[in-house]
Measured scan of single mutants.
Amino acid sequence: LVRYRTISKIPQITLNFVDLKGDPFLASPTSDREIIAPKIKERTHNVTEKVTQVLSLGADVLPEYKLQAPRIHRWTILHYSPFKAVWDWLILLLVIYTAVFTPYSAAFLLKETEEGPPATECGYACQPLAVVDLIVDIMFIVDILINFRTTYVNANEEVVSHPGRIAVHYFKGWFLIDMVAAIPFDLLIFGSGSEELIGLLKTARLLRLVRVARKLDRYSEYGAAVLFLLMCTFALIAHWLACIWYAIGNMEQPHMDSRIGWLHNLGDQIGKPYNSSGLGGPSIKDKYVTALYFTFSSLTSVGFGNVSPNTNSEKIFSICVMLIGSLMYASIFGNVSAIIQRLYSGTARYHTQMLRVREFIRFHQIPNPLRQRLEEYFQHAWSYTNGIDMNAVLKGFPECLQADICLHLNRSLLQHCKPFRGATKGCLRALAMKFKTTHAPPGDTLVHAGDLLTALYFISRGSIEILRGDVVVAILGKNDIFGEPLNLYARPGKSNGDVRALTYCDLHKIHR
Protein backbone atom coordinates (compact mmCIF):
# COMPACT_ATOMS: atom_id res chain seq x y z
CA LEU A 1 0.00 0.00 0.00
CA VAL A 2 2.86 2.37 0.84
CA ARG A 3 4.48 1.58 -2.49
CA TYR A 4 1.23 2.17 -4.36
CA ARG A 5 0.59 5.52 -2.68
CA THR A 6 4.16 6.56 -3.29
CA ILE A 7 3.92 5.80 -7.01
CA SER A 8 0.48 7.39 -7.23
CA LYS A 9 2.07 10.70 -6.29
CA ILE A 10 4.18 10.77 -9.46
CA PRO A 11 1.59 12.54 -11.68
CA GLN A 12 1.12 15.24 -9.04
CA ILE A 13 4.84 15.82 -8.83
CA THR A 14 5.19 15.92 -12.60
CA LEU A 15 2.54 18.62 -13.12
CA ASN A 16 2.79 20.64 -9.90
CA PHE A 17 6.46 20.15 -9.00
CA VAL A 18 5.63 19.16 -5.33
CA ASP A 19 8.50 17.94 -3.15
CA LEU A 20 7.98 14.57 -1.50
CA LYS A 21 9.59 15.69 1.75
CA GLY A 22 6.58 17.72 2.78
CA ASP A 23 4.24 14.73 2.92
CA PRO A 24 4.26 13.23 6.45
CA PHE A 25 2.83 9.97 5.21
CA LEU A 26 5.61 9.43 2.70
CA ALA A 27 8.25 10.09 5.37
CA SER A 28 7.66 6.73 7.09
CA PRO A 29 10.94 4.89 7.43
CA THR A 30 10.37 1.92 5.13
CA SER A 31 12.93 0.30 2.94
CA ASP A 32 10.65 0.44 -0.10
CA ARG A 33 10.23 4.17 0.25
CA GLU A 34 13.96 4.72 0.53
CA ILE A 35 14.52 2.79 -2.68
CA ILE A 36 11.72 4.44 -4.68
CA ALA A 37 12.14 8.05 -3.50
CA PRO A 38 15.51 8.71 -5.23
CA LYS A 39 14.10 7.32 -8.50
CA ILE A 40 11.06 9.57 -8.17
CA LYS A 41 13.26 12.62 -7.62
CA GLU A 42 15.39 11.73 -10.63
CA ARG A 43 12.36 11.27 -12.87
CA THR A 44 10.85 14.48 -11.54
CA HIS A 45 14.02 16.35 -12.38
CA ASN A 46 14.12 14.92 -15.91
CA VAL A 47 10.46 15.72 -16.54
CA THR A 48 11.00 19.25 -15.23
CA GLU A 49 13.85 19.78 -17.67
CA LYS A 50 11.78 18.47 -20.59
CA VAL A 51 8.80 20.68 -19.71
CA THR A 52 11.12 23.69 -19.41
CA GLN A 53 12.63 22.96 -22.83
CA VAL A 54 9.22 22.65 -24.45
CA LEU A 55 7.97 25.86 -22.87
CA SER A 56 11.12 27.72 -23.96
CA LEU A 57 10.74 26.39 -27.54
CA GLY A 58 14.43 25.58 -27.64
CA ALA A 59 15.96 24.09 -30.78
CA ASP A 60 17.28 21.15 -28.80
CA VAL A 61 13.74 19.83 -28.28
CA LEU A 62 13.73 18.42 -31.83
CA PRO A 63 15.58 15.21 -32.58
CA GLU A 64 19.06 15.68 -33.95
CA TYR A 65 18.31 14.13 -37.32
CA LYS A 66 15.48 16.64 -37.92
CA LEU A 67 17.79 19.57 -37.25
CA GLN A 68 20.22 18.53 -39.95
CA ALA A 69 19.83 20.21 -43.34
CA PRO A 70 19.37 17.89 -46.32
CA ARG A 71 22.82 17.01 -47.55
CA ILE A 72 23.54 17.88 -51.17
CA HIS A 73 26.70 16.35 -52.54
CA ARG A 74 29.30 18.60 -54.07
CA TRP A 75 28.88 19.48 -57.74
CA THR A 76 25.30 18.22 -57.69
CA ILE A 77 22.89 20.27 -59.82
CA LEU A 78 19.26 20.62 -58.82
CA HIS A 79 16.92 19.75 -61.67
CA TYR A 80 14.83 22.88 -60.98
CA SER A 81 17.76 25.30 -60.67
CA PRO A 82 18.02 28.34 -63.02
CA PHE A 83 21.30 27.01 -64.42
CA LYS A 84 19.66 23.73 -65.47
CA ALA A 85 16.76 25.59 -67.08
CA VAL A 86 19.12 27.79 -69.14
CA TRP A 87 21.25 24.78 -70.05
CA ASP A 88 18.20 22.80 -71.25
CA TRP A 89 17.15 25.66 -73.52
CA LEU A 90 20.69 25.86 -74.93
CA ILE A 91 20.68 22.12 -75.65
CA LEU A 92 17.25 22.52 -77.24
CA LEU A 93 18.61 25.15 -79.65
CA LEU A 94 21.55 22.90 -80.52
CA VAL A 95 19.19 19.98 -81.18
CA ILE A 96 17.11 22.17 -83.50
CA TYR A 97 20.30 23.17 -85.32
CA THR A 98 21.23 19.50 -85.59
CA ALA A 99 17.80 18.54 -86.90
CA VAL A 100 18.08 21.11 -89.70
CA PHE A 101 21.74 21.07 -90.76
CA THR A 102 22.73 17.44 -90.18
CA PRO A 103 20.40 15.97 -92.86
CA TYR A 104 21.34 18.83 -95.18
CA SER A 105 25.05 18.12 -94.78
CA ALA A 106 24.58 14.37 -95.10
CA ALA A 107 22.62 14.72 -98.34
CA PHE A 108 24.38 17.56 -100.12
CA LEU A 109 27.88 16.28 -99.26
CA LEU A 110 27.01 12.82 -100.53
CA LYS A 111 29.32 12.47 -103.58
CA GLU A 112 29.05 16.19 -104.14
CA THR A 113 31.30 17.31 -106.99
CA GLU A 114 30.95 21.04 -106.77
CA GLU A 115 33.80 23.12 -108.06
CA GLY A 116 36.51 23.93 -105.56
CA PRO A 117 39.17 22.00 -103.66
CA PRO A 118 38.16 18.96 -101.65
CA ALA A 119 37.59 19.39 -97.94
CA THR A 120 40.63 17.25 -97.10
CA GLU A 121 42.94 19.65 -98.94
CA CYS A 122 41.55 22.71 -97.22
CA GLY A 123 41.88 21.28 -93.76
CA TYR A 124 39.44 20.72 -90.93
CA ALA A 125 39.75 24.11 -89.32
CA CYS A 126 38.83 26.08 -92.44
CA GLN A 127 35.33 24.55 -92.70
CA PRO A 128 32.89 26.72 -90.69
CA LEU A 129 30.18 24.07 -90.67
CA ALA A 130 32.62 21.45 -89.42
CA VAL A 131 33.77 23.75 -86.63
CA VAL A 132 30.17 24.31 -85.55
CA ASP A 133 29.56 20.56 -85.61
CA LEU A 134 32.60 20.05 -83.38
CA ILE A 135 31.24 22.59 -80.90
CA VAL A 136 27.87 20.82 -80.93
CA ASP A 137 29.56 17.48 -80.21
CA ILE A 138 31.46 18.99 -77.29
CA MET A 139 28.27 20.52 -75.86
CA PHE A 140 26.46 17.19 -76.11
CA ILE A 141 29.31 15.46 -74.25
CA VAL A 142 29.20 18.13 -71.54
CA ASP A 143 25.44 17.60 -71.32
CA ILE A 144 26.02 13.91 -70.57
CA LEU A 145 28.37 14.84 -67.73
CA ILE A 146 25.81 17.32 -66.37
CA ASN A 147 23.08 14.67 -66.48
CA PHE A 148 25.26 12.46 -64.28
CA ARG A 149 25.16 15.19 -61.61
CA THR A 150 21.55 16.36 -61.95
CA THR A 151 18.96 15.39 -59.36
CA TYR A 152 15.70 13.70 -60.30
CA VAL A 153 12.34 12.89 -58.74
CA ASN A 154 11.73 9.20 -58.05
CA ALA A 155 8.45 7.29 -58.00
CA ASN A 156 7.80 8.38 -54.41
CA GLU A 157 8.08 12.05 -55.48
CA GLU A 158 11.34 12.43 -53.57
CA VAL A 159 14.29 14.43 -54.89
CA VAL A 160 17.27 12.08 -55.27
CA SER A 161 20.68 13.77 -54.94
CA HIS A 162 22.97 10.79 -54.32
CA PRO A 163 25.50 10.56 -57.21
CA GLY A 164 25.37 6.77 -57.39
CA ARG A 165 21.60 6.62 -57.64
CA ILE A 166 21.60 9.45 -60.18
CA ALA A 167 24.11 7.56 -62.34
CA VAL A 168 22.10 4.31 -62.19
CA HIS A 169 18.90 6.17 -63.08
CA TYR A 170 20.59 7.88 -66.03
CA PHE A 171 22.13 4.61 -67.27
CA LYS A 172 18.68 3.00 -67.26
CA GLY A 173 17.15 5.97 -69.05
CA TRP A 174 18.54 8.24 -71.74
CA PHE A 175 22.27 7.53 -71.47
CA LEU A 176 22.51 5.21 -74.51
CA ILE A 177 20.64 7.61 -76.79
CA ASP A 178 22.63 10.62 -75.58
CA MET A 179 25.90 8.73 -75.95
CA VAL A 180 25.25 7.65 -79.54
CA ALA A 181 24.10 11.17 -80.45
CA ALA A 182 27.26 12.70 -78.93
CA ILE A 183 29.88 10.52 -80.67
CA PRO A 184 32.18 12.90 -82.65
CA PHE A 185 32.34 11.00 -85.93
CA ASP A 186 34.13 13.95 -87.54
CA LEU A 187 37.15 13.38 -85.31
CA LEU A 188 37.05 9.59 -85.44
CA ILE A 189 36.98 9.30 -89.25
CA PHE A 190 38.53 12.67 -90.17
CA GLY A 191 41.13 12.50 -92.93
CA SER A 192 39.97 9.15 -94.28
CA GLY A 193 38.22 10.68 -97.28
CA SER A 194 34.85 9.18 -96.29
CA GLU A 195 32.79 12.35 -96.12
CA GLU A 196 29.72 10.39 -97.22
CA LEU A 197 30.10 7.97 -94.32
CA ILE A 198 30.63 10.82 -91.85
CA GLY A 199 27.47 12.52 -93.09
CA LEU A 200 25.42 9.37 -92.66
CA LEU A 201 26.77 8.60 -89.19
CA LYS A 202 26.12 12.15 -88.01
CA THR A 203 22.40 11.58 -88.52
CA ALA A 204 22.54 9.66 -85.22
CA ARG A 205 22.29 13.07 -83.56
CA LEU A 206 18.63 13.11 -84.53
CA LEU A 207 18.00 10.61 -81.72
CA ARG A 208 18.00 13.55 -79.32
CA LEU A 209 14.76 14.72 -80.90
CA VAL A 210 12.98 12.03 -78.87
CA ARG A 211 13.92 13.79 -75.62
CA VAL A 212 12.99 17.17 -77.08
CA ALA A 213 9.56 15.88 -78.07
CA ARG A 214 8.93 14.69 -74.50
CA LYS A 215 10.01 18.02 -73.03
CA LEU A 216 7.84 19.99 -75.44
CA ASP A 217 4.84 17.85 -74.47
CA ARG A 218 4.32 20.13 -71.44
CA TYR A 219 3.13 22.87 -73.83
CA SER A 220 0.34 20.69 -75.25
CA GLU A 221 -2.25 22.54 -73.17
CA TYR A 222 -1.63 25.80 -75.07
CA GLY A 223 -3.49 25.79 -78.36
CA ALA A 224 -1.32 28.39 -80.11
CA ALA A 225 1.88 26.60 -79.04
CA VAL A 226 0.57 23.25 -80.28
CA LEU A 227 -0.38 24.78 -83.63
CA PHE A 228 3.08 26.32 -83.99
CA LEU A 229 4.80 23.05 -83.06
CA LEU A 230 2.70 21.10 -85.56
CA MET A 231 3.61 23.48 -88.36
CA CYS A 232 7.29 23.28 -87.40
CA THR A 233 7.08 19.48 -87.40
CA PHE A 234 5.51 19.50 -90.85
CA ALA A 235 8.23 21.82 -92.19
CA LEU A 236 11.00 19.73 -90.59
CA ILE A 237 9.70 16.48 -92.10
CA ALA A 238 9.45 18.18 -95.49
CA HIS A 239 13.06 19.34 -95.08
CA TRP A 240 14.24 15.79 -94.30
CA LEU A 241 12.36 14.35 -97.27
CA ALA A 242 13.83 17.05 -99.53
CA CYS A 243 17.33 16.00 -98.48
CA ILE A 244 16.51 12.35 -99.24
CA TRP A 245 14.97 13.33 -102.59
CA TYR A 246 18.12 15.18 -103.57
CA ALA A 247 20.36 12.32 -102.38
CA ILE A 248 18.46 9.85 -104.60
CA GLY A 249 18.84 12.03 -107.67
CA ASN A 250 22.48 12.80 -106.91
CA MET A 251 23.40 9.11 -106.54
CA GLU A 252 21.63 8.08 -109.76
CA GLN A 253 22.82 10.99 -111.88
CA PRO A 254 26.35 9.71 -112.75
CA HIS A 255 25.18 6.15 -113.53
CA MET A 256 22.25 6.85 -115.86
CA ASP A 257 22.68 6.43 -119.61
CA SER A 258 19.61 8.53 -120.41
CA ARG A 259 19.03 11.97 -119.00
CA ILE A 260 15.66 11.33 -117.35
CA GLY A 261 16.40 12.05 -113.69
CA TRP A 262 14.82 15.03 -111.97
CA LEU A 263 18.20 16.75 -111.65
CA HIS A 264 18.75 16.51 -115.41
CA ASN A 265 15.27 17.88 -116.07
CA LEU A 266 15.92 20.72 -113.62
CA GLY A 267 19.21 21.59 -115.32
CA ASP A 268 17.53 21.68 -118.74
CA GLN A 269 14.64 23.84 -117.44
CA ILE A 270 16.82 26.55 -115.87
CA GLY A 271 19.53 26.48 -118.58
CA LYS A 272 22.26 24.82 -116.48
CA PRO A 273 22.51 21.31 -117.95
CA TYR A 274 25.01 18.67 -116.89
CA ASN A 275 27.87 18.03 -119.33
CA SER A 276 28.95 14.63 -120.55
CA SER A 277 31.31 14.12 -117.60
CA GLY A 278 28.55 14.79 -115.05
CA LEU A 279 29.88 18.18 -113.99
CA GLY A 280 28.03 21.49 -114.09
CA GLY A 281 24.33 21.50 -113.53
CA PRO A 282 22.20 23.62 -111.17
CA SER A 283 23.59 25.23 -108.05
CA ILE A 284 23.03 23.78 -104.59
CA LYS A 285 20.51 26.52 -103.88
CA ASP A 286 18.47 25.61 -106.96
CA LYS A 287 18.60 21.93 -106.07
CA TYR A 288 17.52 22.42 -102.47
CA VAL A 289 14.69 24.84 -103.24
CA THR A 290 13.35 22.55 -105.97
CA ALA A 291 13.58 19.47 -103.74
CA LEU A 292 11.79 21.28 -100.92
CA TYR A 293 9.13 22.48 -103.37
CA PHE A 294 8.55 18.89 -104.53
CA THR A 295 8.21 17.47 -101.01
CA PHE A 296 5.82 20.21 -99.88
CA SER A 297 3.63 19.77 -102.96
CA SER A 298 3.62 15.99 -102.50
CA LEU A 299 2.88 16.11 -98.76
CA THR A 300 0.00 18.52 -99.29
CA SER A 301 -1.36 16.40 -102.21
CA VAL A 302 -1.06 19.32 -104.63
CA GLY A 303 1.49 17.95 -107.11
CA PHE A 304 1.69 20.50 -109.93
CA GLY A 305 3.80 18.12 -112.04
CA ASN A 306 6.59 20.50 -113.03
CA VAL A 307 8.93 18.40 -110.84
CA SER A 308 8.06 14.76 -111.39
CA PRO A 309 9.68 11.39 -110.61
CA ASN A 310 10.93 9.51 -113.65
CA THR A 311 13.21 6.71 -112.45
CA ASN A 312 12.04 3.73 -110.42
CA SER A 313 13.81 4.94 -107.30
CA GLU A 314 12.21 8.35 -107.57
CA LYS A 315 8.77 6.82 -108.09
CA ILE A 316 9.13 4.53 -105.07
CA PHE A 317 10.22 7.46 -102.95
CA SER A 318 7.27 9.52 -104.22
CA ILE A 319 4.88 6.76 -103.16
CA CYS A 320 6.40 6.81 -99.67
CA VAL A 321 6.07 10.59 -99.53
CA MET A 322 2.39 10.35 -100.46
CA LEU A 323 1.80 7.81 -97.69
CA ILE A 324 3.60 10.03 -95.19
CA GLY A 325 1.58 12.99 -96.40
CA SER A 326 -1.71 11.18 -95.83
CA LEU A 327 -0.64 10.22 -92.30
CA MET A 328 0.43 13.78 -91.58
CA TYR A 329 -2.92 15.06 -92.79
CA ALA A 330 -4.66 12.71 -90.39
CA SER A 331 -2.40 13.40 -87.40
CA ILE A 332 -1.52 17.09 -87.83
CA PHE A 333 -3.96 18.96 -89.99
CA GLY A 334 -6.84 16.94 -88.62
CA ASN A 335 -6.16 18.56 -85.24
CA VAL A 336 -5.91 22.10 -86.57
CA SER A 337 -9.68 22.62 -86.54
CA ALA A 338 -9.87 21.34 -82.96
CA ILE A 339 -7.01 23.63 -81.90
CA ILE A 340 -8.57 26.66 -83.54
CA GLN A 341 -11.90 25.79 -81.94
CA ARG A 342 -10.17 25.61 -78.56
CA LEU A 343 -8.56 29.00 -79.18
CA TYR A 344 -11.99 30.52 -79.72
CA SER A 345 -13.75 28.50 -77.04
CA GLY A 346 -14.05 31.60 -74.83
CA THR A 347 -15.88 33.51 -77.57
CA ALA A 348 -18.16 30.54 -78.18
CA ARG A 349 -19.01 30.32 -74.46
CA TYR A 350 -19.74 34.04 -74.39
CA HIS A 351 -22.20 33.81 -77.27
CA THR A 352 -23.83 30.74 -75.71
CA GLN A 353 -24.33 32.49 -72.38
CA MET A 354 -25.57 35.68 -74.05
CA LEU A 355 -28.06 33.62 -76.05
CA ARG A 356 -29.36 32.09 -72.81
CA VAL A 357 -29.73 35.54 -71.25
CA ARG A 358 -31.69 36.81 -74.24
CA GLU A 359 -33.90 33.73 -74.24
CA PHE A 360 -34.58 34.35 -70.53
CA ILE A 361 -35.49 37.98 -71.30
CA ARG A 362 -37.77 36.93 -74.13
CA PHE A 363 -39.48 34.15 -72.18
CA HIS A 364 -40.19 36.28 -69.09
CA GLN A 365 -40.94 39.43 -71.12
CA ILE A 366 -38.49 41.63 -69.24
CA PRO A 367 -39.21 45.32 -70.00
CA ASN A 368 -36.71 47.33 -72.00
CA PRO A 369 -34.88 49.36 -69.26
CA LEU A 370 -34.41 46.28 -67.09
CA ARG A 371 -33.38 44.20 -70.09
CA GLN A 372 -30.70 46.70 -71.02
CA ARG A 373 -29.34 46.70 -67.48
CA LEU A 374 -29.26 42.90 -67.48
CA GLU A 375 -27.32 42.72 -70.74
CA GLU A 376 -24.88 45.45 -69.71
CA TYR A 377 -24.17 43.71 -66.42
CA PHE A 378 -23.53 40.41 -68.19
CA GLN A 379 -21.16 42.02 -70.69
CA HIS A 380 -19.23 43.86 -67.97
CA ALA A 381 -19.02 40.80 -65.71
CA TRP A 382 -17.80 38.67 -68.61
CA SER A 383 -15.09 41.18 -69.55
CA TYR A 384 -13.93 41.14 -65.92
CA THR A 385 -13.98 37.36 -65.33
CA ASN A 386 -13.89 35.97 -68.90
CA GLY A 387 -16.70 33.65 -67.88
CA ILE A 388 -14.64 31.90 -65.19
CA ASP A 389 -16.38 31.24 -61.89
CA MET A 390 -13.65 31.81 -59.32
CA ASN A 391 -15.54 30.08 -56.53
CA ALA A 392 -16.06 26.96 -58.62
CA VAL A 393 -12.38 26.86 -59.57
CA LEU A 394 -11.11 27.37 -56.01
CA LYS A 395 -13.47 24.79 -54.56
CA GLY A 396 -11.19 21.95 -55.66
CA PHE A 397 -8.11 23.31 -53.84
CA PRO A 398 -7.18 23.09 -50.14
CA GLU A 399 -8.09 26.00 -47.90
CA CYS A 400 -4.50 27.13 -47.37
CA LEU A 401 -4.04 27.45 -51.13
CA GLN A 402 -7.43 29.14 -51.48
CA ALA A 403 -6.33 31.74 -48.93
CA ASP A 404 -3.11 32.43 -50.82
CA ILE A 405 -4.97 32.81 -54.12
CA CYS A 406 -7.60 35.10 -52.58
CA LEU A 407 -4.84 37.16 -50.99
CA HIS A 408 -3.20 37.54 -54.41
CA LEU A 409 -6.44 38.42 -56.19
CA ASN A 410 -7.32 41.11 -53.62
CA ARG A 411 -3.76 42.36 -53.06
CA SER A 412 -4.39 45.80 -54.58
CA LEU A 413 -7.34 46.52 -52.28
CA LEU A 414 -5.61 45.16 -49.19
CA GLN A 415 -2.46 47.20 -49.85
CA HIS A 416 -4.03 50.57 -50.62
CA CYS A 417 -7.22 50.62 -48.55
CA LYS A 418 -6.62 52.44 -45.24
CA PRO A 419 -8.56 50.09 -42.89
CA PHE A 420 -6.22 47.22 -43.78
CA ARG A 421 -2.98 49.04 -43.07
CA GLY A 422 -1.10 47.48 -40.20
CA ALA A 423 -3.11 44.27 -40.28
CA THR A 424 -1.20 41.02 -39.93
CA LYS A 425 -0.86 38.65 -42.84
CA GLY A 426 -3.06 36.10 -41.09
CA CYS A 427 -5.80 38.69 -40.70
CA LEU A 428 -5.53 39.65 -44.38
CA ARG A 429 -5.70 36.01 -45.44
CA ALA A 430 -8.86 35.50 -43.39
CA LEU A 431 -10.47 38.65 -44.80
CA ALA A 432 -9.52 37.75 -48.37
CA MET A 433 -11.40 34.47 -48.01
CA LYS A 434 -14.57 36.37 -47.02
CA PHE A 435 -14.57 38.80 -49.94
CA LYS A 436 -17.28 38.47 -52.57
CA THR A 437 -16.85 40.37 -55.82
CA THR A 438 -19.72 42.15 -57.53
CA HIS A 439 -19.93 44.36 -60.60
CA ALA A 440 -22.18 47.25 -61.55
CA PRO A 441 -22.64 49.10 -64.87
CA PRO A 442 -23.28 52.88 -64.94
CA GLY A 443 -26.69 53.85 -63.60
CA ASP A 444 -27.22 50.63 -61.69
CA THR A 445 -28.56 51.07 -58.14
CA LEU A 446 -26.57 48.96 -55.72
CA VAL A 447 -28.54 49.77 -52.55
CA HIS A 448 -32.01 51.31 -52.30
CA ALA A 449 -33.18 53.47 -49.43
CA GLY A 450 -34.72 51.29 -46.73
CA ASP A 451 -32.87 48.11 -47.76
CA LEU A 452 -31.34 45.98 -45.04
CA LEU A 453 -27.58 46.46 -44.89
CA THR A 454 -26.00 43.05 -44.48
CA ALA A 455 -22.58 43.77 -46.00
CA LEU A 456 -19.70 46.21 -45.99
CA TYR A 457 -18.61 47.34 -49.48
CA PHE A 458 -15.08 48.21 -50.66
CA ILE A 459 -14.76 49.98 -54.02
CA SER A 460 -12.02 48.41 -56.12
CA ARG A 461 -12.68 50.31 -59.35
CA GLY A 462 -15.04 53.01 -60.52
CA SER A 463 -17.09 55.62 -58.66
CA ILE A 464 -20.54 55.75 -57.06
CA GLU A 465 -22.87 58.41 -55.70
CA ILE A 466 -24.98 58.37 -52.53
CA LEU A 467 -28.35 60.11 -52.78
CA ARG A 468 -31.02 61.08 -50.28
CA GLY A 469 -34.04 61.77 -52.33
CA ASP A 470 -32.69 63.68 -55.33
CA VAL A 471 -29.78 65.26 -53.47
CA VAL A 472 -26.28 63.85 -53.94
CA VAL A 473 -24.80 63.48 -50.49
CA ALA A 474 -21.39 62.06 -51.43
CA ILE A 475 -19.37 60.66 -54.32
CA LEU A 476 -17.08 57.77 -53.52
CA GLY A 477 -14.23 56.33 -55.58
CA LYS A 478 -11.52 53.72 -55.51
CA ASN A 479 -10.59 52.32 -52.06
CA ASP A 480 -13.57 54.04 -50.39
CA ILE A 481 -15.99 52.15 -48.13
CA PHE A 482 -19.74 52.22 -47.58
CA GLY A 483 -22.30 49.98 -45.93
CA GLU A 484 -22.82 48.82 -42.35
CA PRO A 485 -19.98 48.34 -39.85
CA LEU A 486 -19.90 44.60 -39.29
CA ASN A 487 -20.92 43.25 -35.86
CA LEU A 488 -21.24 46.78 -34.47
CA TYR A 489 -24.98 46.30 -33.95
CA ALA A 490 -26.90 43.20 -32.98
CA ARG A 491 -29.38 43.63 -35.83
CA PRO A 492 -28.67 44.78 -39.37
CA GLY A 493 -29.58 48.37 -40.05
CA LYS A 494 -31.43 49.95 -42.94
CA SER A 495 -30.02 52.17 -45.64
CA ASN A 496 -30.84 55.88 -45.34
CA GLY A 497 -30.09 56.58 -49.00
CA ASP A 498 -29.63 55.21 -52.49
CA VAL A 499 -26.24 54.07 -53.82
CA ARG A 500 -25.89 54.36 -57.59
CA ALA A 501 -22.96 53.55 -59.87
CA LEU A 502 -21.61 56.42 -61.96
CA THR A 503 -19.17 54.28 -63.98
CA TYR A 504 -18.42 50.62 -64.38
CA CYS A 505 -17.67 49.53 -60.82
CA ASP A 506 -15.99 46.53 -59.26
CA LEU A 507 -16.75 46.09 -55.57
CA HIS A 508 -15.70 43.67 -52.85
CA LYS A 509 -18.13 43.02 -50.04
CA ILE A 510 -18.04 41.18 -46.72
CA HIS A 511 -21.31 39.87 -45.28
CA ARG A 512 -22.21 39.84 -41.60
Rank of each mutant, 00 (worst) to 15 (best):
L241E: 01
G191E: 06
I146D: 01
E157I: 12
H79S: 01
I332P: 03
M322I: 03
N250I: 14
V180W: 11
P184A: 01
F296L: 13
L431H: 01
D133K: 01
P398M: 01
S298E: 01
G249M: 01
A107C: 01
D268F: 09
V289L: 01
E115S: 14
P184E: 01
D444K: 03
S220V: 09
N306P: 01
Y124M: 04
R211N: 08
Y222H: 04
N368H: 14
I138Q: 01
H169N: 09
R371E: 02
L145P: 01
V86Y: 02
P309Q: 01
R259A: 15
G193E: 08
V321W: 01
W75E: 01
F296Q: 01
P309G: 01
E112C: 04
P273M: 01
I198S: 05
L187R: 14
W262L: 01
A204I: 05
H408W: 04
V168N: 09
Q402C: 01
A423Q: 05
D137K: 11
P70Q: 03
T76F: 04
T347L: 06
E121T: 14
I339E: 03
G261M: 01
H364F: 04
E196C: 10
C400D: 04
A338H: 15
G249V: 01
Y80Q: 10
S220M: 09
L92Y: 04
I72P: 11
Y97F: 03
P441W: 09
K287W: 01
Y293T: 01
I270W: 03
V160C: 10
F185H: 04
L266Y: 03
A348D: 03
C243R: 01
V307R: 01
R373Q: 12
R259F: 01
Q415L: 13
L355N: 15
K418I: 05
Y222M: 04
L134C: 05
L92A: 03
E359V: 01
P441L: 10
I332V: 10
V95N: 01
V212K: 03
N265E: 15
L229P: 11
N391S: 08
I284C: 01
L323V: 10
A392I: 06
A330M: 05
E121G: 15
L188P: 08
L323C: 05
T445C: 12
K425Y: 09
G223F: 04
E121R: 14
L327S: 02
L241Y: 01
N312L: 01
A291W: 01
Q253K: 10
S161P: 03
L263V: 03
I146G: 01
C406I: 05
V132A: 05
G346S: 10
A69P: 05
D286Q: 01
M390T: 04
N275L: 05
M433F: 08
E196P: 14
D217C: 12
F296K: 01
P441I: 10
A330F: 09
K425A: 09
A430D: 04
R205F: 01
L201S: 01
F83V: 08
L134F: 06
E64A: 07
A430G: 04
R165T: 08
K287D: 01
E158Y: 04
Y344A: 07
R208K: 06
K287Y: 03
L323P: 02
F435R: 01
R214N: 09
L413W: 04
R371T: 03
P118G: 12
A130N: 03
G261N: 08
I324C: 08
I405N: 01
F108V: 01
V142P: 02
Y350D: 01
P254K: 15
E112A: 12
Q341F: 04
I77A: 01
I248N: 01
G334H: 06
K172P: 01
L129P: 01
N386C: 10
P398L: 01
Q372L: 09
S326F: 04
L145W: 03
N335A: 03
L209P: 03
L299M: 08
F296A: 01
F175E: 01
I77D: 01
A348L: 15
E314C: 01
P441Q: 06
S412F: 08
Q379R: 10
A225M: 04
T76L: 13
I177N: 01
R71I: 14
R356D: 13
S337N: 15
L90A: 09
Y170N: 01
L207V: 13
P309K: 01
G281W: 01
S301A: 13
F397W: 08
T290H: 05
T437L: 12
L197G: 03
K436M: 11
L93A: 11
H439P: 01
D268T: 11
H264S: 10
L292W: 01
W75P: 01
R211P: 01
A224Q: 09
D143N: 03
S161Q: 09
F363R: 13
Q341C: 05
T300N: 04
Q415A: 10
N410T: 07
L241R: 01
L355D: 13
A247C: 01
A125Q: 07
R205I: 01
M328G: 05
L110Q: 15
T290V: 01
R362W: 01
I138L: 12
L413Y: 01
R211L: 01
A235M: 09
Q253Y: 06
A403F: 01
W262A: 01
V302L: 01
K66E: 07
L129K: 06
S301G: 14
V393S: 03
C232S: 13
L409F: 04
R218T: 08
I72H: 14
L355A: 13
L446Y: 02
W87D: 04
F185T: 09
I96T: 01
S383Y: 15
R342V: 10
H162G: 09
G116V: 08
D257E: 11
G271S: 01
K395D: 07
K215F: 03
K172Q: 11
T233L: 14
Q402A: 03
H448N: 14
S220W: 12
I339S: 04
S297T: 11
F363Y: 08
Q402F: 01
V393A: 05
L188Y: 08
L292E: 01
I284G: 01
G281N: 01
G223D: 14
A167E: 01
F171K: 01
R205E: 09
L292M: 01
I270G: 01
Y219T: 05
C406T: 04
L197E: 01
A432R: 01
L292Q: 01
S258L: 09
V95I: 13
G199C: 12
S331N: 03
L78T: 05
S412E: 12
F378H: 10
Y329M: 08
H239E: 01
S81V: 01
L176N: 01
Q127G: 05
R165Q: 12
P273V: 01
I339G: 03
N386G: 12
G123N: 15
A403E: 12
P398C: 03
F360P: 02
Q127H: 06
G164E: 06
H439W: 01
A167F: 07
F140Y: 01
A235Y: 01
L323G: 03
L409A: 06
C122Y: 01
A167M: 08
A119N: 11
I135R: 01
R342H: 14
M251K: 04
F108K: 02
A392G: 08
F108H: 01
S283A: 01
R362A: 07
L401Y: 08
L241W: 01
A392L: 08
K84M: 01
L263H: 01
D217V: 09
W245R: 01
R218F: 01
F101N: 03
C126R: 01
E64Y: 12
V357R: 01
R356F: 15
A99T: 01
S283I: 01
P398H: 03
G422W: 01
F435N: 03
W240F: 03
F175D: 01
S276Y: 04
P442M: 04
L92M: 06
L92S: 04
R371H: 04
Q269N: 03
G261T: 03
I270P: 01
A213C: 09
A330N: 01
L446C: 01
G223P: 07
V393C: 08
L323F: 03
G261I: 01
